[in-house]
Each structure stands twice: as structure tokens, then as C-alpha cells.
């Protein structure tokens, strides 16, 4: 896989072959199943199946019932009578992160909450998606200069869609969610949240080994956590 994953995804004509080559060359064995090898270079059935899976993931979404701040009030309105997000197949709130696909981050993240939010995100099963709702979740919003405020949820977890506004109107949130569904259905939003550099570095390792390898690098005695929000972008 190249260093520009976004280009690969967006590129118009040669994207398909590029990703295929990347898969076939064995750079990234995780996507390179035996089935793919068996079907050769034109895996018609598999691409159709991929398409179907993308459509499925984009069509049915269980939301995490997750309220943080002001935006959660508008989020409730989005689920409720007038706006009814459920029309788009994404309006089932699940209280348990184990059963949710999408996490809408509706509010300001502060230092005390950031680790907990990370934990909730980690508890969600793959493939999972995150919608950032409102300025606070994007950048800290009006509270950006606060001593306790984290400048955007993206400092903590990967985010698929940002919906700006303070707070965004329910229509805006619906637009954001539908846009994300579109992206997922078109295969533009990667269902596996692994960053490219991780792929290059650990591509030959299985998931468990990867965790083990990373864990062995941590020295428990001097590990520190830095809340250095002043320097962050």
C-alpha cells in the first residue's frame, strides 16, 4: 500500500488496479486471502461481494446512545419526531457500545473524559465509524482556549465525518450521517481504522502479535500520559 491511501481511494481510473496490485503483491497479507489468490486478478465475485458488504454497512447502522454536551440535545431532536434519523436506517440507539456501529461525538471533550471516551470507542466492534458533531468535537470550539479542553475529538479517536455548527441543526446532522452512509456504501470510508504507517510497519504481523509487539515496547515504570493540549494543533 502506498503512502497516500486517500489518493488510492479517490483516484478515478487506476485506483482499482493499484489496490489490486497492492493486495496481490503480498505487502498487506491481511487483505490477501486464499480466496483472492484463487480467483486471480479479476475477482469479480469478491468485488461484488465487497460492494454488497459496503451497501450493507452503509444502510443499517446502530448508533451509540452517547450524549456529552449541548449538541446531544440537538442529537435527541434528530432522533425524535420531526427529523427522525431512523428514516435512513440509522436511528436505533444502543446503550451498550458492543452493539453499536456509529458513535456521534456530540460535545466538548475535556481531559477527564477523553480517556473514558477512548475506552468506549475501543469497546465498539469493528467496523466502527465516528461522526463529529459540532465545533467543540471538531476543534474545541468556543472553549478551545480552556485549560481543561481537548482540541477536538480527533486528538483521541479517528473521525470519519465532521459536522460543523454550534450546535449543528438536526438537518445538518442528518446530512452528515447520510453523507457518511454514502461514503461507506461507495467504499470510500475505510471500514478498518488502521493508519497507513501501521500497515507498513507491522504488515506481516497478525493482530495479536502486533499488540504484543507494541506492548513489549512500553516500559511500565516510566510511561507517562501527557495532557499537553497547549501545543496540539
Amino acid at each position: 500500500m502506498s503512502n497516500e491511501p486517500r489518493d488510492v481511494i479517490r483516484g478515478s481510473t487506476d485506483a482499482q488496479t493499484k489496490t489490486q496490485e497492492a493486495r496481490m503483491e503480498g505487502v498487506d497479507n491481511r487483505f490477501n486471502s486464499k480466496l483472492r489468490e484463487a480467483f486471480g486478478s479479476s475477482p469479480f465475485i469478491l468485488t461484488k461481494f465487497d460492494k454488497f458488504m459496503n451497501w450493507v454497512r452503509g444502510s443499517s447502522m446502530f448508533m451509540l446512545q452517547f450524549g456529552i454536551a449541548c449538541c446531544s440535545i440537538e442529537m435527541m431532536h434528530t432522533y425524535a419526531v420531526k427529523h427522525d434519523l431512523d428514516r435512513f436506517g440509522s436511528g436505533v440507539p444502543r446503550a451498550s457500545p458492543r452493539q453499536a456501529d456509529v458513535m456521534i461525538v456530540p460535545g466538548t471533550i475535556v481531559t477527564k473524559f477523553a480517556p473514558r471516551m477512548k475506552r468506549v470507542y475501543d469497546q465498539m466492534p469493528e467496523p466502527k465509524f465516528v461522526v463529529n458533531m459540532g465545533s467543540c468535537a471538531i476543534s474545541g470550539g468556543p472553549f478551545q482556549e480552556g485549560y481543561n479542553v481537548i482540541k477536538g475529538a480527533e486528538e483521541v479517536i479517528p473521525v470519519d465525518i465532521h459536522v460543523p455548527g454550534c450546535p449543528p441543526r438536526p438537518e445538518a446532522l442528518i446530512y452528515g450521517v447520510v453523507k457518511m452512509q454514502e461514503r461507506i456504501a461507495n467504499g470510500e470510508s475505510s471500514p478498518v481504522t488502521v493508519k497507513p504507517y501501521e500497515l507498513e510497519q507491522f504488515s506481516d504481523l497478525k493482530q495479536d502479535e502486533l499488540v504484543d509487539k507494541l506492548a513489549s515496547q512500553i516500559d511500565e515504570d516510566d510511561l507517562v500520559m501527557r495532557y499537553n493540549w497547549a501545543d496540539s494543533p
Binding site: A69, T108, V110, K112, F143, N148
Partner: peptide, 22 residues
């Protein structure tokens, strides 16, 4: 404290006339 957004600090940094009201 999971939503302590430094409201008092924000208000102390704003001018009376316009910047505090939001």
C-alpha cells in the same frame, strides 16, 4: 467534572460588552 469546560476562565477572558454573552 466530565464536562468542565472552563466557563469561568472563558468569561474572565472576555470583555463585558460583547464577548461574555455567548
Amino acid at each position: 467534572g466530565y464536562l468542565h469546560r472552563c466557563e469561568e476562565q472563558m468569561c474572565q477572558q472576555g470583555t463585558y460588552r460583547h464577548q461574555i454573552m455567548p
